[in-house]
Simulated scan of single mutants.
Amino acid sequence: MSVMGDNHGFGVDIGGSGIKGGIVDLDTGHLVGERFKVLTPHPSTPGACAGAVREVVDNFGWTGPVGVTVPAVVTNGTVRSAANIDQGWIGTDANALFAASLNRQVTVINDADAAGLAEDKYGAGNDVSGVVILLTLGTGIGSALIHKGVLVPNTELGHLEVDGKEAEHRAASSVKDAKGWTYEKWAAQLSRVIREYEKLFWPDLFIVGGGISRKADKWIPMLEVSTPVVPATLLNTAGIVGAAMAAQAQA
């Protein structure tokens, strides 16, 4: 049964391994009840993912608008890239795809952008009035750039070249794992990347997410940067919450 409260929304977060969703209290940023997760189809084609998203939404009996994240650049509802999903997504009108599958209004947003919106409003950035940059440190580096609650979408800062190498090829957490680096060695590389972002954007705060953020106490103190860096607080619910926020904004 759905819980259609006065200020409840619904978000679905499509990841490389799982598709998870839930009802969000948009006053608090908390989930209403538990989230529900299904495995991401392989291959993760648009049609297959649309079916999985429908399964997640139907599990709750939700009847209102839905927000959906994808790990890709999204402009005006159309997917322009494909990271950790099938290449068939490129050029897909994702808003129309999911709206047809779910028979309702759907808003599609980049996954890092969704997490950034959620962290800015309900999480680590909720008391910062200036420029906030969220970085998701995983297989690559996802990014969200937000100023006073307003998102600049699809920044893709992980692809910025830093000293002759893409930022995410230099400092994603997957690079640390692949090369067997210590936190200290990895933090030195991440510092080089963050200093480049500082020169370009002069943010007031960096929020770092991804699995490695759970051990932030082991490496944030090693960063040699000027801007405060804090771990994300919403963890694996941020995408769901941000997707629900995006759907509400378009309703």
Rank of each mutant, 00 (worst) to 15 (best):
F36E: 00
G22T: 10
I23R: 05
K37H: 03
P43F: 06
V38S: 00
P43R: 08
T28L: 00
I19E: 13
K20R: 15
K37E: 14
K37W: 03
G21Q: 12
S44Y: 13
D25T: 11
L26N: 05
T45D: 08
L26S: 11
F36Q: 00
I23L: 12
I14N: 11
P43V: 10
G18C: 06
L26G: 08
P46I: 15
D25R: 04
F36P: 00
G15K: 14
I19F: 10
G16W: 15
G33A: 03
G21F: 12
G22Q: 12
G22A: 09
V38K: 04
P43D: 09
V24L: 05
R35L: 00
D25F: 11
K37P: 01
H42Q: 13
V24N: 06
I14Y: 11
V32D: 07
P41D: 03
H42V: 11
V38L: 04
V38C: 01
D25L: 11
L39R: 08
E34P: 03
G15P: 13
V24A: 07
G18F: 15
R35E: 02
G18V: 10
T40S: 14
G16S: 12
V38G: 00
T45N: 06
K20T: 15
D27Y: 02
P46W: 14
L26P: 08
P43H: 07
V38Y: 05
L39N: 03
V24P: 02
P43T: 07
T40G: 05
T28V: 02
G33M: 04
G15F: 14
V32H: 02
